[in-house]
């Protein structure tokens, strides 16, 4: 290996860690003391975990029967994740003309619809 490539590699990795550290700092600053954001992020993590477990289950079985039930369970997680991320975006910076409270109300209604569809689809 030439020193040049070593150098660039070191440069690259240090750059990456720098950027990563910076992002982490910003993120920590953002959620620091904001219990609602923490609540949202942990909830999102949970949804990802449940989705991964279901997918792992399908992989272990090598069979997606009953497919509708899998879709219902998986889409429930994904849908809830998407809705929660949308909520988070509006919590951090509310969209124009839509107050945070209204956003939360919409989040509740949308989530209820999602739950109904999931239960309907799982049969």
């Amino acid at each position: 290996m030439t020193s040049k490539t070593l150098k660039t590699r070191r440069n690259w990795s240090s750059k990456f860690s720098e950027t990563f550290q910076a992002s982490l700092q910003t993120y920590k600053k953002q959620i620091d003391g904001n219990s609602r954001l923490k609540l949202i992020d942990i909830f999102c993590g949970f949804l990802v975990a449940v989705g991964v477990i279901q997918f792992a289950f399908v992989c272990v079985l090598k069979d997606n029967f009953p497919f509708n039930a899998f879709l219902a369970g998986f889409i429930c997680c994904v849908g809830q994740f998407v809705l929660t991320i949308s909520l988070r975006m509006q919590v951090v910076k509310s969209f124009e003309g839509i107050s945070k409270e209204r956003a939360f109300g919409e989040f509740i209604v949308a989530s209820l619809v999602l739950h109904f569809i999931s239960l309907h689809f799982v049969n």
């Binding site: 449940v50 079985l61 009953p66 899998f70 369970g73 809830q80 739950h115 239960l119 799982v122 049969n123």
Partner: peptide, 23 residues
């Protein structure tokens, strides 16, 4: 057959209820 009759669906059912409850 309903989902609860199929053992495979138990995982998905638990997931849906877990998401609902935690929500």
């Amino acid at each position: 057959p309903r989902s609860w009759e199929i053992s495979n669906s138990w995982v998905y059912l638990t997931s849906i209820f877990a998401v609902g409850l935690s929500w």
